[in-house]
Every structure is written in structure tokens, then in C-alpha cells.
Write a protein that binds this DNA or RNA. Sequence first.
DNA 1: CTTGAATAGTGAGCATGCTTATTATATCTC
DNA 2: GAGATATAATAAGCATGCTCACTATTCAAG
Lengths: 164, 164
Amino acid sequence: MTSNTEHTLGFLVHTVGRLLRKRLEQMAIDTHLSAAQWRLLFWVAKEEGTTQARIAEFLEIEPISVSRMLDRMEQGGWVERRTDVNDRRVRAIFLTDLGREAFVYVKSFVGEVTEEAFAGISKADQKIIMQGLERVIENLNSNITSSQDVEDGTEAKTLESAPQ
Amino acid sequence: MTSNTEHTLGFLVHTVGRLLRKRLEQMAIDTHLSAAQWRLLFWVAKEEGTTQARIAEFLEIEPISVSRMLDRMEQGGWVERRTDVNDRRVRAIFLTDLGREAFVYVKSFVGEVTEEAFAGISKADQKIIMQGLERVIENLNSNITSSQDVEDGTEAKTLESAPQ
DNA sequence: CTTGAATAGTGAGCATGCTTATTATATCTC
DNA sequence: GAGATATAATAAGCATGCTCACTATTCAAG
């Protein structure tokens, strides 16, 4: 169980993410919102009337994923798409009353889950962890996105490629 | 961008996980392995001849998910399913030569990505972060799994449930 | 004004997670 | 040994991410 090798940053973060998601969904089960939907709702609440493209940018997922999540969320009655009079390509996204209610409700659990997660960890260490994660994001962001490097095809190492 | 509210543990961990996955996939692109497949490969390498059920337990995903990932990975030539003579329900999973090669190759990047992620963070803080995340996992694990509590239907708060 | 490029959104189809249900095989109890 | 129960794997179908391709609309250059 504690064989050391799997305790890499990647494994740990993956696991923490899964557990946090699971716990939040468990707490807010009667909203019928998934963690992904809640994240989306969060941005809409923050910037009502925002566009799908902007939501995709915030969430760092593809516009098509937003599109189909909104299909379901509109169906479920949490959000509303309105056509923009100035730009007819755009769908402006608004919360419904139900959406707003659900948002406030789920939001009330976030602090609770965080407290649970951080139990037994000193405030000072909590701060180091949070700031550390922010730094990690900065570090990785600066090295990703350079998709030109990939196109250039100058990989240092190579390997016979597998089928599929 | 830095409006504070989104800098919760959940958002940060979610983002770090996504970026790490992306970076690793970017580095090891010529293996044609996804991060999920690499995680699976990791456990098979660690315990060759293991069963699908055991892999599912390790990865904390459902057996059916393992089943279908293995369909693709067997197809791709990374792993091999062998029938167990002692228990004919069981499929014992082994790495192929290609799988072993790919595993060693990807493994060589993990340290690299971690270093990149932790750039500018002191060793002491890195330790606090890693141990902190392990503690978070323990904390959340002890409060999850109690699915009986959910069945009992004694929720503290309620909300009109939405359709869908 | 017209043409061409950029932008907003969606369709099709895939991977990886899920839940629920089914099949085959082992094991446990009597 | 027979019948109930448990376990290993898979099937069907959904959600959420992806890529690639497409339409509709706007903006920019001439």
C-alpha cells in the first residue's frame, strides 16, 4: 500500500481531486448537479450574461464541451441561453432562480469540505500548500501552451510507436 | 483573473491535475499512451499477473472501466490477458515487451515534470506540500465511503430537486 | 461594398469515468 | 452434492472531456 513509488505529485493530486469531487457531490447530492456543472455554474454566477466561449476559457475546456453541458443544464432548468442583440453568434448565459439557489447551496459546502480536507494541518502549512499549488500552476502554464515545439518535431527521445 | 473566490483547494487541485496530465502526455506523446493508460500500466508493471479487479481497486475506478481500457491497451499491444488456470473467472494481466518499454520511457519523464512543477519552491515546502496532500487523502477517505449515511436519508439541508 | 479571415457555436465520433444489470465461475452452508 | 451467495469480468447506456469539421456571423482590408 505504501510502496513509495506511487506517491508522486501526479498521483497525489489526481487522488485528492477525485476525493474532493466525490465528497462535494455527496454533500450536495440533492441538487443533482455534478462537480463539473457546479464549476460551470460558478463562472456564470460570477459573470452573468457571459458567453460560452468565455466560460470555456475560464474553465480551460473546449467550447464544445461547454455547449453540451449547457444543453443538459438548460434542460435541467439551472441556466438560460439568451441571444445577444449586438452579436447574433453569441449566446449569453444567465442563471435561473433554481440555478442561483443551487449555486448558493453548493457554495455553502465548499468551506466545509476544505476544512475537512485540511483537518490536522496547521494554518501555516495550509498556506504553504495553497501558495505552492498556485506556483505549480504558474510553472506548468509557462511550459505548456508552446505547441509549436511539438510541431517542430524535435523530440529528444524517440520510441517505436505502437499501433492504434 | 485573480478574483480570489476561485482559489479554493478544489479549483487548484483540479487545475494542477489537468496541467500535470497534459504536460506528461505532451512529453511522452510518441508512446500514444494517455495519462490514464500510463497509470494502469504502472500498476501492472508493479504486480505482473495481477487481476483486473485488483487493478480497479488500486486505481480506485470501477472494474468495467479497467475492462474497457484493457480492451484498447491489448489492442495496442501494451498488455496481454492470460486466463488463470486456478480460477477461470480471472484474467491475469501482463506487460508485453512494448508495454515494458513504454513504461520505462514514460517513467523517465515523471521526475522531470515534478521538477518543473516544483521550480522555485524550497525542498522544505515541497515536503510540506506532499505530506499535506497525503494527509488530505487520509482525511477525505475517512469521511467518504460511509454510503450508509446517504441511504439513511438524514440530510441536514434540503432543496427542491431539479428535473433530469 | 465585397472578399477573406476570425470568432461563436454546434455535430460527429472517440476515451474514460460512472451506474445498473448479466454471465460465468467459485465458494460456502446445509 | 445442491442451492445460495459472492466474485470476476463484461454489456448497455450516460456524462464529460477531447479532436476535427462545419455553419453562421462579424470584422478587417482593399
